[in-house]
Simulated scan of single mutants.
Amino acid sequence: MKRFLIADDHEAVRSGLRAVLEQRADWEVVAEANDGGKAVAAAIESRPHVAIVDFSMPRMTGVEVARRIRDYPLQTEVLIFTVHNSGLIAQQAFEAGARAFLVKSDANKLLLAAVESLLVHRPFCTKSCVTEIDRGPGVDGERHHELTAREQLVVKLVAEGYSNKGISAILNLSVKTTEAHRAAAMRKLEVNSTAGLVRYAVRTGLVEA
């Protein structure tokens, strides 16, 4: 029996994916999660063969989920599932340890192919995604790539409305360290306000508009 984890903050998406996957008699969805932190915990507990993880989730991006799953001794393959046909996000996903990248608009025709590739440990990426990777990032993409993983996570949490104290509690950091990451991100992105960070997070898909 092949085991799956589905992580997406929209219940309708999770239900749809479950219905597709469980059409196969030997495939079973053993866990679901509606935010990034829960996705990592569910992966550790259920040890699925494949985790289908939305990129834009509360508290932690799908890329960070992939990175954390990779850091544990799990044999879980990660598929990043997103509305963003972004070569930059795809590149970050693969660098973090994900082995498949699928745009949600392609799911009807390519989801099963992507999952079947992962089950035999082959990477999968749509042709449109490969084209975007080959083009390379634009100006915003280059700035995005300059941020460290921790700085991106801090920006995401700022955009979700968390205070520095709240972010520190989530990431297990001191408030001073959180403030330093936030200041570094603002400097690199050349913004001088929380609103600037929020606009950037929305534009690059770190949070949904």
Results as ranks from 00 to 15, higher is better:
Asn164Trp: 04
Phe81Ala: 05
Pro123Phe: 14
Glu146Met: 14
Ile69Val: 11
Val198Gly: 00
Ser174Val: 11
Leu206Gly: 01
Ala31Cys: 07
Ala41Met: 02
Arg70Lys: 14
Gly138Cys: 07
Cys125Gly: 08
Asp134Leu: 12
Val20Pro: 13
Val207Lys: 06
Ser168Cys: 10
Cys125Tyr: 10
Ala41Ser: 09
Gly37Asp: 12
Leu79Thr: 03
Gly141Phe: 03
Leu153Asn: 08
Arg187Ala: 13
Leu88Glu: 15
Ala149Lys: 04
Leu147Asp: 12
Asp9Phe: 04
Pro58His: 03
Leu79Cys: 01
Ile170Ala: 10
Ala19Phe: 14
Asp106Leu: 14
Leu118Asn: 10
Arg70Cys: 10
Leu102Ile: 08
Gly138Leu: 08
Thr76Arg: 03
Val20Thr: 10
Ser163Tyr: 02
Arg122Leu: 06
Asp140Cys: 09
Met57Cys: 10
Gly16Thr: 01
Leu153Gly: 00
Val78Ile: 08
Arg14Asp: 05
Ala31Tyr: 07
Lys2Glu: 01
Arg68Ser: 00
Leu79Phe: 03
Ala90Gln: 02
Val63His: 06
Gly36Tyr: 12
Lys127Asp: 09
Lys165Glu: 14
Gly87His: 04
Phe4Leu: 04
Phe55Arg: 02
Thr194His: 15
Thr82Gln: 07
Ile167Lys: 08
Ser174Thr: 15
Glu32Trp: 00
Ser193Gln: 10
Ser56Phe: 05
Glu132Thr: 00
Glu179Asn: 14
Ala41Leu: 04
Gly37Asn: 14
Asn172Val: 11
Val154Glu: 00
Phe124His: 05
Ile80Ser: 10
Ser174Pro: 12
Ala201Thr: 01
Gln91Ala: 15
Ser86Arg: 02
Val207Tyr: 09
Lys156Trp: 02
Gln92Tyr: 11
Val175Pro: 15
Thr76Ala: 02
Lys109Ser: 14
Gly62Pro: 05
Arg14Ile: 11
Leu189Val: 09
Ala100Gly: 12
Leu21Trp: 01
Thr178Phe: 08
Leu118Arg: 06
Arg199His: 11
Gly138Thr: 05
Asn192Tyr: 14
His10Val: 13
Lys104Ala: 03
Ala183His: 09
Leu79Glu: 01
Ala41Ile: 01
Asn85Trp: 09
Glu95Gly: 04
Leu147Val: 03
